[in-house]
Amino acid sequence: MFSWASEAQGALEAMMYAHVDARAFPCVGAKAAMARGTLQVLACRAIDSAWDDVRIHDGLLHFASAYRDDPGLYRSFAVVFEGPGTLDEAGFEAALWARVQSLSDKDVWRGQEYDARVSPDPANPHFSLSFGGEAFFIVGLHPHASRPARRFARPAMVFNLHDQFETLRADGKYESMREKIMVRDEALAGSRNPMLARHGEASEARQYSGRVVDEGWSPPFAYGGSGK
């Protein structure tokens, strides 16, 4: 176990760093996080298995706590799975939401409060996930993504702090950064991503897996806590 974990950590971490560092990669926020040494990577076995869910949740709690102790822009927590590499977009979406549900259930079990700044209802336009009391937005990556910007050699879930987006808005930097990412994505794919929406306009749950979904789509997720 230790041998696998140490070897996989080094290999998958290097793979993620190389991907983000590539000139064509459109997300300037991720590039900034890597340049600052604040892009954290956790290597795990399989996105369609609960094997590493406790490790992932531990990592999210530590990540959220460290952010509260020392807030700062451009931090991401990337969970990179060794496989499987054969999932199509629907299969990846199902596996991603299975992990989300499991991680959310662990948050409830461990007595963590839901971030009061967002909604736990995926149908609500102010929906966001919450782990360790901090709201998170997920970007899913996998080998068979239709959008080139979401295509990566391994399945991955990149957790970004919602508070960072709010800080960018408060600083007047959000719109310019968003437009820069969209222009770079359009240059890569030949078209703008139809699933992108600002927080509060539509539920961000529709964006997590990267698959284009219709208006009637809803994620297989239900928050198991109370008091929200």
Rank of each mutant, 00 (worst) to 15 (best):
146 S>W: 06
139 V>P: 00
188 L>W: 01
175 E>T: 09
189 A>S: 13
157 M>P: 01
101 Q>S: 12
86 T>D: 14
130 S>T: 14
93 E>H: 11
129 L>W: 07
178 R>Q: 08
136 F>H: 13
117 R>G: 09
190 G>T: 02
141 L>N: 03
113 E>N: 12
189 A>N: 06
132 G>A: 04
187 A>T: 11
89 E>H: 08
143 P>L: 03
186 E>A: 15
167 T>A: 13
105 D>C: 09
186 E>T: 14
183 V>E: 13
123 A>K: 14
120 P>F: 06
164 Q>S: 00
186 E>G: 10
113 E>C: 13
125 P>I: 10
153 A>M: 07
156 A>K: 01
133 G>N: 03
199 H>V: 07
98 A>Q: 15
198 R>Y: 05
199 H>A: 08
118 V>G: 02
107 D>G: 13
149 A>K: 11
85 G>L: 14
158 V>D: 04
111 G>E: 07
91 G>Q: 05
101 Q>C: 09
163 D>T: 15
135 A>L: 05
186 E>S: 11
125 P>C: 07
104 S>K: 06
182 M>Q: 13
162 H>A: 09
158 V>N: 09
159 F>G: 03
135 A>E: 02
178 R>M: 13
102 S>L: 10
172 G>T: 10
167 T>M: 13
119 S>F: 11
189 A>M: 06
197 A>W: 00
168 L>P: 01
137 F>L: 10
144 H>A: 13
105 D>L: 11
115 D>E: 15
124 N>K: 05
138 I>M: 03
92 F>C: 09
155 P>T: 09
183 V>T: 14
132 G>C: 05
117 R>T: 13
101 Q>D: 10
159 F>Y: 09
196 L>V: 15
88 D>F: 10
134 E>N: 12
188 L>M: 15
153 A>N: 05
164 Q>K: 02
162 H>T: 08
143 P>V: 04
156 A>C: 08
146 S>E: 14
118 V>K: 03
105 D>R: 14
138 I>F: 02
121 D>H: 04
